[in-house]
Amino acid sequence: MGDKDLGSIILVVSLIFLIAPVFILAYMFVHNRRKKRHIEEKALMQLTFDAEITKTQLEVQEQTMQTIGADLHDNIGQLLSLTSLTLNSIELDSDKKNRKKIDAAIDLTMRSIKEMRLLGKLLQGDQLVGMGLDEAIKYEINWIEKSGKYKVNYTNDGEMPAASSPDKDLILFRILQEVLNNIIKHAQATVISIKLEYEDSMLQLQVNDNGIGFNHADLQPGQSGMGLLNIQKRAGIIGGGANITSNPAEGTTITILTPYP
């Protein structure tokens, strides 16, 4: 190899050493721009998540208000009217008869208090979930069964992890409320089965009813909007998914599967 060749090689190597930092610098800027975009996307996702939570809370608030209104009118209102009637019919000169009427009034008042307590628990969704998802579901079932129209079977398979996720619990609970609300409104069911199962860091919530069911293809675009779409969207928020299977006259099964905690 001649001196000229050696000189050329050395020159090329030196040039590589001089140009390499330019490429490193260019890479740093490209990577930094990507990092910025990633952070912005993350912030946007967080914002969307917060907006969804707020929206869900508002929807549930509205739903709860309607339930309270209906319950006050149909249930507690009736009980208090009866109490008032009973108290009005008391004749001051008939002790034995009065005793019976007072006992009936006390019984009606006690039932009103019990109803009020149940209603209060339903209102405090966050506090309910604070006791654990399992307990919250039991309260919800208690509320449904109170109407006397539904038989609810609930099973909890697999031990729940010690570390819970209150945010996920709340969203799962709201999904359950949405599903039960749909059953009450549309399904004409008599038996509801709820199954909560935890296995391999995955939590599954399954709700099944023996109602009239429906055909996905028959649903109008607006019809599926609020109910089923909301269930799928909320399951997506917590990194899970919702599977809805239904056939006319065969009831409906909704399965939510999400990583947990």
Binding site: I10, V13, F17, L18, P21
Partner: peptide, 9 residues
């Protein structure tokens, strides 16, 4: 980085 090559050669 540039000096490394220049110093050597």
């Amino acid at each position: 980085f540039g000096s490394t090559a220049i110093n050597f050669f």
